[in-house]
Amino acid sequence: MVNTSNTLTLELTLTHYWLAVKAIPRLASHKKIALVEKFGLKALFAETTDLTLSGLTNPQRAAITSPAWDSLTKIISDSSHCHSQIIAFDDPLYPQLLKEIYDPPLVLFVRGNVDLLLLPKIAIVGSRNASISGREIAYKLAGQLTSHFVVTSGLALGIDGQAHLGALYQQGYTIAVVATGLDITYPARHKKLQKDIVENQGLIISEFAPGIAPKPGHFPKRNRLISGLSLGVLVVEASLKSGSLITARCALEQGREVFAIPSSIYNVQARGCHWLIKQGAKLVEDTSDIVDEFEALVTDNLNLSRNKAKDNLAEKSKKQHLCNDPMLASVGYEITPVDLVVSRSKLPIDEVLTRLTVLELRGLVSAVPGGYLKLNRG
C-alpha cells in the first residue's frame, strides 16, 4: 500500500516492490512468487487487494499492507553507494537456472560484469584448510575450465580462493558468491581478490543487502546459490563434515551434476570426495571429464586469452631441465619425509637440503610439516 503520509513523496520502482516481497517474514520464496503471480507485483500491495483468504499470518499481511518503503529505499541507496546493482526475479538478466531451484532469491545484489549471469557456469568448491596438492589442483583446473565456463565459487579461503585465482591467471571469467552485503569482504584477507575479480570483468553476487555481516546461517544459503547458478559442482577437497558437501547436496537436490577429485586414502580432506564418488559423483582426473558432460551447452570462446603463453622458451627449457632432476623424482605428490628423500636419492643430507631449497624456489616442491611435497604446475 502506498497511501501513507511518509510515502506520498516516494517514487516507487519495481525494485522497491520486489524488495517488499522479499521482506515478507517467514514465507518461503516459492510462496512469495506464487503471491506475485496471483495478484501481480504492484497489485499485491494495492489497497483493494483482499488477503483474508491468502493463508498469511498477521505479520505477513502487515508486511504487505504497510511496507517499510523508507527502509527499502535506503537499501537501494546503499547498494548504489557500494557500486552494486539489484537484479530482481523478473529481470532479463536473472539467471534461468537459478529460477528453477526450490527457493530462489527474489533479488540479487551484484557488482561487476552482469553479463556473466547469462553464461554457462561451473562451480569449484572445497575445504578452507586444503592441502597444498588440493590448492594446486583447484588453481590448475579452474584455469583450464575458463575456456568453457565461468568459474563460480564462494570467495572462501582454501579451494575457493584458488579457483578464483586460477581463473584470473588465465584471464578467464569468475563469479564469487558471498554471504555478506557487498560492502563487506569476508574473509577480510580476500579484499584484494574481490577487487581483482571485479576489475578483471568478474562478478560478485549476494542475496544479502549492504551492511549485513556474515553469520553461520548465511553460508548454507550462499552454497545453494553457488550450485544453483551452475551446471555442475566440482568438489576438489572436502572432509566428511565440510560445508562443501552442503553445496554438493544442494546441487543434487537442484538436479545439477556433481564431480569430485580423488586423492590418497590417507588424506582426511579427501574423505568427503571419496564419499561423493561412492554415491555416484563423477570422478574427475582432468577437465574433459567435466566438459564432456555439457558438450551441447558450453562454448570454446569464453576465455579472453586461453592461448596466452605463460613462459618464454628459455624458461620452458629451464623448467624442463629441472623437472628431469633426479632429486625431484625422489619427492612424491604426497608428503615425503626428508630421510626418505635422502634414501631415494642416495645423496648426503646437506646436499639434499640444498637442492630441495632450489627446487622450492623454482616452484617445483613445497616444504610442508613432515617433509616436502612435489607440485605440479603443468
Rank of each mutant, 00 (worst) to 15 (best):
M1L: 10
Q162R: 05
A28D: 13
N223Y: 14
A281C: 11
T57A: 15
M327F: 04
L35T: 08
A314I: 14
H190Y: 09
H81L: 14
D292E: 14
S305A: 15
A62C: 04
L98T: 05
P59T: 01
R256V: 04
A62H: 03
L108Y: 13
E285H: 14
Q171V: 00
I261D: 03
D183I: 07
S147R: 15
K221M: 15
H321F: 07
K318G: 01
L276H: 04
L118P: 00
S5Y: 12
T65H: 07
D289V: 08
V342W: 03
L35K: 10
F89M: 06
L356H: 01
S79G: 07
L155R: 05
L27A: 11
R344Y: 07
G112L: 11
P214R: 04
N129D: 11
L157P: 00
T354F: 15
L98D: 08
G363C: 07
V236I: 14
L10S: 15
G378V: 02
K316Q: 15
R355F: 06
D70T: 11
K195I: 03
A281Y: 02
I87R: 13
N312Q: 04
K195R: 15
G55M: 09
A34E: 11
Y173D: 09
I246R: 03
G370R: 07
D292F: 02
L117M: 11
R377M: 11
L304A: 11
T73W: 00
I86H: 04
L328G: 11
S227T: 04
A213F: 03
V178F: 12
I76D: 05
A88Q: 05
I24R: 06
P120A: 02
G112K: 08
E293P: 01
F294Q: 06
S244N: 06
E100G: 08
L116M: 10
S264W: 05
I226N: 04
S345T: 07
N303R: 04
N301F: 13
I24F: 03
E207L: 09
G202C: 07
E47G: 02
D50K: 13
L165H: 10
K121G: 13
D350K: 01
S79E: 13
I205N: 06
